[in-house]
Write a protein that binds this DNA or RNA. Structure first.
Lengths: 221, 221
DNA sequence: TAAATTATTTTGACTACTCAAAATAGCGCA
DNA sequence: TGCGCTATTTTGAGTAGTCAAAATAATTTA
């Protein structure tokens, strides 16, 4: 049984490789886990010995099938717990991430399955992040973000890819939740700004970086 | 913030001193925690240094007010989680103890309060064990057990003071749950047996040891 | 009262994880 | 071709918790 430290390493490798690149650097991993780079290297060597990851020295690290299975299971627990905390316990959207971070390591598969049923087998968590299936399938879909989508098109928010309380609170206060609709009225790349308009006719400016964290799909598809 | 190891030590000291004796021996504590006695001694010395316990060398250990507060909080989490697992997730009465043992260390006060409200502020868990209040009051009440109560009196089970899956399954199968009614028809102390009759008119023999773990109160009070 | 039994404590060692700081490798660039 | 920058790895050391086994204290028994 992997320790919760091991689970965290594997989960973060999965998250960091989500977008695309197959090799996660020690630097990125160390930042994600809030440890110094040397610690990450040491730990990764141990995880490689135990068959959870493949380590290309000085290149980066990737998950083995075994490691990926563990990581997906942890991610499933994390996202189902978040959904439970928001949907059933009515907790604040922005603060459940830290809670789930703890709970994901101590919840059994039995409890998880019952939670899943209680919630009606949700496909995504409250932030729009896809929940891996029991058998470890992660429904990964490539969406445009507010930084890359077409201008002046009606859009629906499908996902917020950022877990910090501050960002989520900002999103919440400005009605930028999964399901909300809006249009991007313009972009000023030199200034690094995007301007949007939500259905409540409110205009809002956003940095391109922040806009990149809000994923959308065209409204009528 | 005490580690989950520390929380476990404190919780078990509280449980072992519940009945009465103020000093818990290293031997008993080591058995409860499944460690060797030397480990318990070492750990207790550290806990004493940190102000959680008072250690009388070669006599035993007791909780300081600080330690007791921590222990009660853990016990509250444990029992509320058990109640949630049984009442909401409909899990098996006999198996929730092990689950709660993990969850009790990773649940926040915020989540706990909401769970408490969801459950309707229960006074006891599914086994009849009293749930400490938020402010750390433990409603400890002395009940008779099937080993000590009067014979041929109608009784109601209020509590099962044993958490092993096997015992709880046995109790479940024989309708010995909190709330069930029965009478003790006789006792044979030399043989170490008690005979009882449940409302379903079934007769059953039980060791005195087992009988001592089932606490009861007289039916009409 | 002394010997024997039993419980507790001490000692030395090990695992898992971490950091600080020095050593090394790979890279871009002149 | 070699210099310097940056990321990575290595080294040495520390913390938390654990065990095995030897040492010590207390209690029982004779």
């Amino acid at each position: 049984m992997p320790s919760s430290t091991v689970e965290n390493y594997l989960k973060h490798i999965l998250l960091l490789s989500e977008g695309a690149q197959d090799l996660v650097s020690m630097g990125d991993l160390a930042v994600a886990l809030a440890v110094v780079p040397g610690t990450a290297t040491t730990m990764i060597k141990a995880l490689a010995r135990e068959g959870y990851v493949a380590h290309q020295p000085r290149q980066g690290v990737s998950l083995t099938p075994t490691g990926r299975t563990v990581a997906l299971s942890v991610l499933r627990k994390h996202r189902l717990v978040e959904t439970f905390l928001v949907n059933v316990l009515k907790m604040d959207w922005a603060s459940v991430h830290a809670e789930a971070e703890q709970l994901e390591h101590s919840i059994s598969d039995e409890v998880l399955d019952r939670l899943d049923a209680l919630l009606g087998y949700p496909a995504t968590d409250p932030h729009g992040d896809p929940i891996p299936s029991r058998k470890g399938k992660l429904n990964f879909q490539v969406y445009a973000s507010l930084a890359t989508c077409a201008l002046k098109q009606p859009l629906r928010i499908v996902r917020i890819t950022e877990q910090t309380t501050e960002f989520l609170q900002f999103a919440d206060q400005n009605h930028l939740l999964p399901g909300s609709t809006l249009i991007v009225t313009g972009r000023n790349l030199p200034a690094g700004l995007a301007t949007i308009k939500t259905t409540g006719t409110r205009a809002l400016a956003l940095s391109i970086t922040a806009a990149g964290k809000i994923l959308v799909e065209p409204l009528r598809r």
